[in-house]
């Protein structure tokens, strides 16, 4: 049962990480929007479109907005790395199952 429990737990943890990196990240950016954006008075000409105040990006990385950078990099490199780690563990588990 040890190998079985390891399979379940490793899969659950990796899947949770992939879900956040590739799925829920944007929900979190909306919920915690004040950490990524500042609210400023809207420039005069844009008031009819955006209202009295509007959001502007607060943090950047490689000149891209931080949340956008996290979204595209985590959903690509991030999930690839998590997936590769999961594969390595499953390869080991398979060897153990065979013996």
């Amino acid at each position: 049962m040890k190998a079985y429990k390891l399979e379940i737990w490793v899969t659950a943890v990796c899947l949770a990480l992939v879900s956040v990196a590739g799925g829920f990240a944007s929900s979190l950016f909306v919920i915690f929007r004040n950490s990524f954006f500042n609210r400023i008075a809207t420039p005069g000409a844009l008031v009819p479109v955006y209202g009295e105040t509007m959001y502007v990006v607060d943090k950047y990385i490689l000149c891209l907005p931080l949340h956008y950078f996290l979204l595209i990099v985590l959903s690509w490199i991030g999930v690839t790395l998590i997936g590769a780690i999961w594969c390595l563990i499953m390869d080991k588990l398979e060897e153990r199952q065979r013996t």
Binding site: G22, A25, S26, S75, I82
Partner: peptide, 17 residues
């Protein structure tokens, strides 16, 4: 962009599940 970020990551979901 969020739609396709999920689509990219979903391959790992497909693999794990």
């Amino acid at each position: 962009v969020a739609v396709y970020a999920s689509f990219t990551a979903s391959f790992i979901g497909l693999m794990m599940l």
